[in-house]
Design a protein around this nucleic acid. Structure first.
Length: 567
RNA sequence: CGGGGUGUGGCGCAGUCCGGUUAGCGCACUUGGUUUGGGACCAAGGGGCCGCAGGUUCAAAUCCUGCCACCCCGACCA
């Protein structure tokens, strides 16, 4: 391919709208252009790479017996009403204004279950793994970071159909292994975390995460021990507060200018870890006090799962005053004005010598013995894990990192098959719903993550498997020198015959311009051919990743490149 | 949806507070010339209803009102 004829609109300057390196580079290297918030066009160079990601996805899905479907983006609303997801998804689902019975599909569980209900009738016909690589549509409230979170996005989704739980376990495991292979082939460093299944329903689910400062999830990880968990469910080893000897009687004392734990401990010289924090939440419309160490933060996800509800929010100041008769800063578990339930973080189990608000503005208690002085309904882990705490496997410090969710695998169970009547007969002629799994990968996210992890200040650094072209030949003064043209074209022809994809920069541009563009585009090897080198029978081979340059005679270059690409 | 910011040629920006010739700069683009191994230089050009719609005024990129779009923070996120 001659670069003079290939559309690669590179940008010298960083577009104002892009914050994330991958987003900036995708724009600058001419891979994508934005068309609206969360909507992008893929330009030829970007689309070439995107297709290579898809090739890997297809190969690995086919390898576990997957069969590819092409499913409609327009779906009958009726099918979605059967699983109640029109309502559940609410504003996230795009509706069609002038054709009210159609919606834009945000995902495809329903359609898959629909086809299964029509055509899969016997346990003998399963397992099935059905997949698709297609655009999905979600009316994201706030698209961001380029293709990381869009309103239209490409997703590889697969769905497994099984007759038994054991069958589902096998399908799930196959996907887990395939996903490891896929991300490894893409050259992405990732980790897997257990996750909550959210509104999808179902039991087990895991997320494939990539550490990244722009990630929207937070995870606690220790790469050495292999501990990794979404912060929502992360745990760590922390010494409980415990008991001190000779704890005196509980005593009220005046704390007129101490509203925060910090002020309290500093002004009265009290140990921070024994200052208990009173967090007031409204849970299922009822006020609840959760007592925690002063230095800890409440983890709302843990609260939600403990109380088995998502109706959870912090109480406002008026509600607090009404229940406690005091303002925040002086709240505590003792002498609460109204009768409410009090729970405590596990670290406070059986602790004494505690300091807490007296539910009287400007007053605190000290020497509290939680067993003696408080009525605690239950102890549970309510706190958010902090960086540096010991992981539960090795005892070594945890890192708390932002992460991007690249893939998610779910054991769905029978939610969709039951709703849509996807039933089969088992060996005994008994009718039962298919047991489903669902397994997604954000295709564009994969590409963005590859760039996030493989770039430098000059541009993208593609790996051999995803690069849009294998070799970038830079013909210096190509338009002027017949010698350069001849060597460039001979090399291009020979390499193409070996099955390699070649981009030949034949443009009438100065050398520096071509070098900068080549580094930005990021093809793994550059072959620099110019008169200066040819006079000494040399061309230059440059490896993008290391920056290593070697001078080599034109006759030896094929060998070096075939070795590099193992062709 | 709440808060903040920005809309001026393809890209990056100045000008807006304090209204007043022909709206400016860098990059990119066209033509000619000189150059040519890490985003060259000189010269001459082309390209703008200053986001949109109203209003104020002799006069609006600039002031007022409404709307729209995009970005960031938060909420939300099958």
């Amino acid at each position: 391919m001659y670069q003079s004829q290939f559309f690669i609109p590179t940008l010298k300057e960083i577009p104002n709208d892009a914050q994330m390196p991958s987003h900036q580079l995708m724009l600058r290297a001419g891979l994508i252009r934005q068309i609206a918030a969360g909507v992008f066009s893929w330009l030829p160079l970007g689309y070439k790479v995107l297709k290579k990601v898809q090739d890997i996805l297809r190969e690995e899905m086919d390898a576990i017996g997957g069969q590819e479907f092409l499913l409609p983006a327009l779906n009958p609303k009726e099918i979605w009403e059967q699983t109640n997801r029109v309502e559940a998804m609410g504003d996230v689902m795009f509706h069609i204004k002038n054709r009210d019975n159609l919606i834009l599909a945000p995902t495809h569980e329903e359609i898959i279950a629909y086809h299964a209900s029509q055509s899969v009738k016997s346990y003998k016909e399963v397992p099935q793994i059905w997949y698709q690589i297609q655009n999905k549509f979600r009316n994201e409230p706030r698209p961001k970071s380029g293709v990381m979170r869009g309103r239209q996005f490409l997703m590889k989704d697969s769905y497994s159909l099984d007759a038994t739980e054991e069958g589902l376990d096998i399908s799930y495991e196959k996907h887990s292994e395939a996903y490891h292979k896929i991300f490894n082939r893409c050259g992405i460093k990732f980790f897997v975390v257990g996750a909550s299944s959210g509104a999808m329903g179902g039991s087990k689910s895991q997320e494939f995460m990539v550490e990244n400062p722009f990630g929207e999830d937070t995870c606690a990880v220790n790469y050495e021990s292999g501990y990794s968990s979404n912060i929502e469910v992360a745990i760590s080893k922390v010494e409980p507060v415990g008991r001190i000897d000779n704890c005196p009687e509980i005593e009220k004392f005046a704390t007129p200018n101490a509203k925060t734990i910090k002020e309290l401990s500093e002004q009265f010289d009290l140990p921070v870890e024994r200052c208990a924090k009173s967090v007031v939440y409204i849970i299922d419309s009822k006020p609840v006090l959760i007592l925690m160490r002063g230095i800890d933060e409440l983890n709302e996800s843990k609260v939600q799962s403990y109380f088995a509800t998502n109706q959870v929010r912090p109480a406002d100041e008026n509600e607090i005053l009404d229940v406690f008769g005091a303002h925040p800063g002086s709240l505590g578990p003792i002498n609460i004005k109204k009768q409410i339930q009090v729970f405590a973080d596990k670290l406070l189990l059986d602790a004494n010598g505690l300091i807490s608000g007296a539910n009287e503005d400007g007053q605190h208690f000290k020497n509290i013995d939680i067993e003696r002085d408080c009525k605690i309904e239950g102890y549970e882990d309510f706190r958010t894990v902090l960086a540096g705490e010991a992981d539960t496997i090795s005892g070594n410090p945890l890192k708390v990192v932002n992460a991007i969710e690249l893939g998610h695998i779910f054991k769905l169970g029978t939610k969709y098959s039951e709703a849509l009547g996807a039933k089969i007969l088992d060996e005994n002629g008994k009718e039962k719903p298919l047991i489903m799994g669902s397994y997604g990968i954000g295709v564009e996210r994969v590409l963005a993550c590859v760039i996030e992890q493989n770039h430098d200040e000059n541009g993208i650094i593609w790996n051999k498997g995803l690069t849009p072209f294998h070799v970038h030949i830079l013909g210096l003064a190509y338009d002027k020198s017949e010698q350069v043209q001849k060597v460039c074209n001979e090399l291009k022809d020979q390499l193409e015959e070996l099955g390699l994809e070649i981009l030949l920069d034949d443009r009438k541009e100065r050398p520096g311009f071509k070098f900068k563009d080549a580094d930005l585009i990021g093809i793994p090897v550059q072959v620099v051919i110019g008169d200066r080198g040819l006079e000494e029978n040399k061309v230059e081979l440059k490896f993008r990743k290391t920056g290593e340059k070697i001078e080599i005679s034109p006759s030896n270059i094929i060998e070096s490149l075939t070795k590099f690409y193992e062709v």
